[in-house]
Design a protein around this nucleic acid. Sequence first.
DNA 1: GTGAAAGCGCTAACAA
DNA 2: TTGTTAGCGCTTTCAC
Lengths: 388, 388
Amino acid sequence: MTSHRTQRPATIPDVAREAGVSRSTASRALADYGSVSPQTRERVHAAAGKLGYRPNQLARSMITGRTHTLGVVVADIQNPFFAGVTRGITDTARAAGYQVLLANTDEDLTQELSAVKMLLDKHVDGVITAPASPSSTSHLAALREARCPLVLLDREVPSLRTDTVTVDNRGAAEDAVRRLLEAGHRRIGMVTLGGSGEHWPHAEGRQGETGKDGADGQEGDGRGPYGGHGPGRRAQPPAQVSTGVERVNGFRAALLAAGIEDPDTYVRLGVHGQDPAALAAELLSLPQPPTALFTTDSLIALGALSAIQEAGLRVPEDISLITFDDADWTSVIRPRLSVVAQPVQELGARAVRALIARIEGHAQAGPERVVLDTTFISRDSIAPPPSC
Amino acid sequence: MTSHRTQRPATIPDVAREAGVSRSTASRALADYGSVSPQTRERVHAAAGKLGYRPNQLARSMITGRTHTLGVVVADIQNPFFAGVTRGITDTARAAGYQVLLANTDEDLTQELSAVKMLLDKHVDGVITAPASPSSTSHLAALREARCPLVLLDREVPSLRTDTVTVDNRGAAEDAVRRLLEAGHRRIGMVTLGGSGEHWPHAEGRQGETGKDGADGQEGDGRGPYGGHGPGRRAQPPAQVSTGVERVNGFRAALLAAGIEDPDTYVRLGVHGQDPAALAAELLSLPQPPTALFTTDSLIALGALSAIQEAGLRVPEDISLITFDDADWTSVIRPRLSVVAQPVQELGARAVRALIARIEGHAQAGPERVVLDTTFISRDSIAPPPSC
DNA sequence: GTGAAAGCGCTAACAA
DNA sequence: TTGTTAGCGCTTTCAC
């Protein structure tokens, strides 16, 4: 009964035997560390090739503590924003020799929690996430405890002091809304989904019943008033508290700067899962409805569009519209939508680079904070308000 | 120098010591196998809880040969079709206690190859993929060799005799085109991207310069003529050769059945990466342009829409349009698009279930072939041809 | 029902 | 430069 050697995958002992060296020499030659003479190296590789040797990554990982796997936790891969981000992540990771373990959470804290636990159990080398909550972050702290690097994407959690990759949400929103103001609009509505409701703090000003913010509350900064500024070169903006909230703050700043006293009248900050169309419809059915709408992602824009049509209104004659996220359809529908484009793939790519830098030890000492520029793409969905 | 026990994660020996049992007993109690007395079991679990013990999945996997990880290889997560499928996959996998390792290929065979290799190296328990080519399948055969179950999604490779989850592309296309015919159209165009060009066989009939089909060529079926049939209850359709090609065949069958002699005149089967808008524009600039267009995914529909607008045409007055895939925007643009909706999440879910059944050994003997129903959603993009 | 001992495939001290 | 030895954390015979 001769054993078939092709049956069982070849192991280091097999290669060592074939090459006539010891296991450790074979290992050194194959994993490319320590010192091996060129000839032996050659011989070992030849033997490995001949036997079709593939290192058992499981065994290797157990020793080295590296799995070359990145954990990615996002709310919803079906949202074009996250789809683009994920695309950027997987591509960049692969190019750097890392694989990606993906989990959806639907903005649900419980799912996020168990996802992170799983990732930790699987010994990922690092985690990228857009956290559902800035306050309930014990699972994220657990990552630190396990010495598992973490990069926050799209959303910041100041209390965490970890690497982040975001866009300047406040500035971008402010800039976008200013375009609406410049077109002559005074009643401007905003529809956004602020994450999982109670978890995220509400925006500055009245709208808020607060909701415990900042949590562990080191780093009390980032809450102060924010000097208006345009896009482009600028000083480091303060830490953002929540993507949705920051955008509301930018919105409000723009209106305030234009002398509009009660900027919150037309703000609808919904919770995740709420129907954006209903939120928009609510605004449109007001006695003095807004003459322009600002939405914070392409899915919400779709809802707004739906409500606008339902109300028998036309864009931009009756109502102007700007949205975050340059989804593929925004330039095909008529009128084409003016948008705040986020560099989605780049966001993912930068997150991966920051994470790998951290993993491989060539990152700066403190947390790195990457803030990418958005691009306003002017198309046909903005016109002066109908009364003008 | 007392060692801090919270520093290093607790291991089985730690738990065993704490519970006052042997390693093997602890292992048995924790992994829940063999026989352990209820009391010991209790004691071990208590100890584990106290120490915050988490099993090292790497070590466990090395022994058991199971990683509880599924490999997923898709062309492009940014395509809403794959985003939906991936969503279905991750959700179903998580519910079943599996994680998902994701890879994008951009329909590139080389990337698909290395992705599969990586997944194998990572010892995934199974792989789900929408293969880029039906002929170059050596990497997929390698999966079988490594006893790694494989489920094909959206596309079939008859030579592989493995589980597949698809929709009835031919029937769905035929049905959709029939709607166009019933509206009075005779010049119907089709724009599709057929995967990576040379890899996929061309459609039946003239269009084809062939391209080696079927490859290893066991199972020569699935190429014969295909009796027309509606959606819904039906006999098992023959194996599909390529999603794109099958749809072309359905298209052609419908036209032929309607007595149109030269159904290929307005068919544009592009290769991946080609600009769908250009393909559509080409059709529209013909001396006798089509009065209706049929596209095979939402991205192509966007391209077609773009070309239609460029040509100064209106939907549906000047030209009718039907597309595969009920992307979110199709029901919001005006006119709303009539579509062939695929059960995207369900496709992913079924693929996971088939795969896990295979992995866990409770699957039928032969390959399972799941063919899901599509749904035609009638909206406003179909009208009689302008000349009528 | 429980424990002792072996071993998965690999890397990493330490010698030589 | 190379070989010897030990051991990562776990499961799993095999005795008892």
